[in-house]
Amino acid sequence: MEGPSSRLSEARDGAVQPAGGRDASGEVESDSSRDVKTHFRVCRFIMETGVKLGMRSVPVATACVLYHRFFERVNISSYEPYLVAMSCVYLAGKVEEQHIRTRDIINVSHRYFNSGSAPLECDKEFWDLRDSVVQCELLILRQLNFHVSFEHPHKYLLHYLLSVKSLVNRHAWSRTPVAETSWALLRDCYHGAMCIRHAPQHIAIATLYLALNSYGVELPVGEKEWWQICNVLMWLWYCRVTVV
């Protein structure tokens, strides 16, 4: 999608490398490798923009999933990724009922690419960019067949953390930032397509498992592994909530 948004990515990333170009080390970089790096940078843009807009974790995660789902269906060379990202932030706010004004998204994005600059004036340039964001939102909806509501690992990770905390000595738990590390690892999962390739329960368990191993926190050994117990407890909790 060509339009006024193209200058945003140019200001941020510079000239686009041709296919089969060389990276900083002088080695030939494949198209897939370059696309992965582009998606990583754009998702980082989504996260930083979300923080500046005061968005909660789940709406930001939804924006990243929308972005990955969209480019799972289309070629990245056909559309401006940063424009798609801005539209994903806008759409995610609607889906998760944390509405963000397009003007705020545009101004925050403008400051992201042009640090220290003043907000855009409401001139033709601004309205053209706003129209591009709205039109791109409709394109995303059509590409995803209006399936824009997703289940995220956040609720699972919260439950698993509470369950594991009850199994660990409270002094050992307070000395190690397992919870903070788990949430940070979960956030990092949204930089790539991992968040759409695996079940949310598995992502939550994996991030907690890695955090526990990173700090050498050992859990009591029983007949079943701790993650099996957590899954059973989560299923029982879900059944109780559903019945109520």
Rank of each mutant, 00 (worst) to 15 (best):
G21A: 15
W235Y: 11
V178F: 04
G21I: 03
H202C: 09
Y82H: 09
Y215H: 14
M234W: 15
N169G: 13
P59W: 05
T102S: 10
Y190R: 01
T176V: 15
A206M: 11
H110S: 00
Y156F: 15
L83S: 07
A85I: 00
R142G: 00
A63Y: 02
E10D: 10
M86V: 02
S87N: 03
G54Q: 07
Y190W: 05
T49G: 10
R130I: 00
G50K: 01
L8F: 15
A204M: 03
A85C: 11
S166E: 15
I106T: 00
V241A: 10
R73E: 14
A63H: 04
G116C: 01
R103A: 14
F126R: 02
V95Y: 03
V134N: 03
G3I: 03
F113M: 08
M86H: 04
R103N: 04
F71I: 01
L161R: 06
I105G: 01
V89A: 06
E218Y: 06
V217M: 15
F150Y: 15
H99C: 06
A61N: 06
L186R: 01
D188A: 04
V89R: 00
A206L: 09
A15M: 10
R130E: 02
H202Y: 07
V108W: 06
A211R: 03
F126L: 01
L158M: 08
T49A: 15
H171Q: 13
N114P: 00
T181A: 10
L162K: 14
G21D: 13
H198N: 09
M194P: 04
A118K: 12
S117C: 14
G222Q: 09
G3F: 00
F146H: 14
S6W: 10
N75G: 05
V58M: 06
D35R: 15
E151F: 07
V178M: 05
Y79S: 05
E151N: 08
Q17E: 12
A172Q: 15
A179V: 08
V241H: 10
A193D: 13
R34M: 09
A63N: 07
Y160F: 15
L208F: 08
E2P: 01
C64D: 07
Y156M: 02
S166T: 07
S78P: 01
A85Y: 04
L233Y: 07
Q201F: 05
S32W: 10
M234H: 13
S182G: 00
R69F: 06
E218F: 08
K124R: 11
N75F: 06
C136D: 03
E180K: 00
N213F: 08
S32N: 10
H99Q: 10
M47H: 08
S115L: 09
S9V: 09
L120F: 07
F70L: 04
R240F: 06
L157I: 11
W237H: 14
D128G: 14
A92P: 08
R103G: 02
S132M: 05
R44V: 13
S77C: 08
S163V: 09
R175Q: 12
L66T: 07
S77K: 11
S32V: 11
C122N: 13
D23A: 07
V58R: 12
V178C: 01
W127D: 02
L212C: 00
Y79F: 14
I140N: 00
E29Q: 12
D104Y: 05
L158E: 15
P81R: 02
C43P: 11
F70I: 03
L210N: 06
